[in-house]
Design a protein around this nucleic acid. Structure first.
Ligand code: MN
Ligand code: MN
Ligand code: MN
Ligand code: MN
Lengths: 218, 218
DNA sequence: TAAAGTTATAAGGTATACCTTATAAAAAGA
DNA sequence: TCTTTTTATAAGGTATACCTTATAACTTTA
């Protein structure tokens, strides 16, 4: 009956809270701040802090507070990214009121693996801030992409980037609906153009344009 | 650090499993079936079954098995509805592969309150089956509706039902576009008819017809 | 530097949901 | 009917994440 994407929900929430509450990456966050944030007793906070420190998520400086180490910060950033993307989904696509979205996202944030998170981000148009204006941490995902020109016939993939970019090409790409994140399939390959399927549409891409469109083959 | 929509995640999963696995509502599901499904020991299953029975979610017939009572079935249906709607969201909007959607939905299913579930359903076009073809239980949302005849001038609402129904009336209603779910506004009230706005259209409804059209005032 | 305030630690407890081993009771089959 | 199989129950254990009360250690302030 385990949920989540690997790290325990509780641990994710502690790491996220440390990230949210800290004033600067290097200055330790007093345990009292965590106690207030969660409404837990100082003893309980101390217990969890010991555990987080032993398990290698944080640095604990007794009588001073905690900081995230690299591993803990990575989990915190991924959590906050998921949290804020779900918030955007809830407010932008489901019209959930602003004030409720935060709380609901507090559960959803633990439920999406990275692949789903990135697809969600693409669906939302890769927003850079949550409905409350807080920046959404960027994806730290590294993908291996292929130039559409080189993609084999029948390849199914996700548009990753337009590079090198130029005004003309960007306008064309927008017209074809080949924005980053879109799922496409290579349907035909000819001398002068490549036919790809985007959603229900078939579009013909001149090979010069196909040279600057990159996809991650899935 | 509690998630969920009220009922414990674990309890929801047990009730959902009983619903999924049962062959008929009345024939008890042997505990061994639950043990196999979850991969838990018979003793653990028995413990949980005792708890579910004590807490009033199921009937337990020793040596025969368990059935859901009304309360348990309501929770199971709501869970399976959420599960299958999230599956549709994952496959239809995020292009998550068929095979992965089920597992991811196994966590998301616990994370959406009813209002969010219904908005999600609407966003997806109120699908009636999951990507695997299994029917999605309908919303059991209860509304308080008013007869259109009685609805005050200016009232804005959603058509809930046509009752009592008859062939003639149904044909008229369809012609007016007053199908259940439609948003309408009462624009004018006269002796013999009521003028309502449906989408961009204005339609005149004879008072006799207005007697059998019910709306939920919003 | 001594008192006051804050933080840490020890000890014992709760609830949830899983586990194993052993035994008892009931149902099913030969 | 008698044996085998299935199901139930008792007893004791684990891990997680919270709790309270009491005491010890450290830091801050007067
Ligand atoms: Mn959370
Ligand atoms: Mn926010
Ligand atoms: Mn589940
Ligand atoms: Mn399904």
């Amino acid at each position: 009956m385990e949920s989540g994407v690997g790290v325990r929900e509780c641990i994710e929430d502690y790491l996220g809270a440390i990230y949210r509450l800290r004033v600067a990456p290097e200055s330790p966050l007093p345990l009292s701040a965590l106690g207030e944030y969660f409404g837990f007793s100082p003893v309980s906070i101390h217990e969890m802090v010991q555990k987080l420190s032993q398990q290698g998520w944080i640095h604990y400086y007794p009588y001073r507070g905690v900081t995230l180490n690299a591993r803990g910060e990575a989990v915190a950033l991924a959590l906050l990214r998921r949290h804020r993307l779900w918030e955007r989904f809830l407010t932008d696509m489901l019209d959930v009121p602003w004030a409720e979205a935060h709380e609901i996202a507090g559960t959803l944030e633990h439920a999406a693996p990275e692949s789903v998170t990135e697809r969600l981000s693409a669906l939302l148009g890769d927003p850079v801030s949550c409905p409350h204006g807080v920046p959404i941490p960027p994806s730290k995902r590294t993908y291996i992409d292929t130039c559409l020109r080189q993609a084999p016939l029948g390849a199914r993939g996700r548009v990753t980037r337009i590079a090198p970019e130029s005004g003309d090409i960007l306008r064309d790409v927008q017209g074809w609906g080949l924005l980053p994140g879109r799922q496409i399939t290579v349907v035909e390959k000819h001398e002068a153009d490549i036919i790809v399927q985007v959603e229900e549409r078939l579009v013909s891409i001149p090979v010069e344009s196909a040279n600057v469109i990159w996809i991650e083959v899935l």
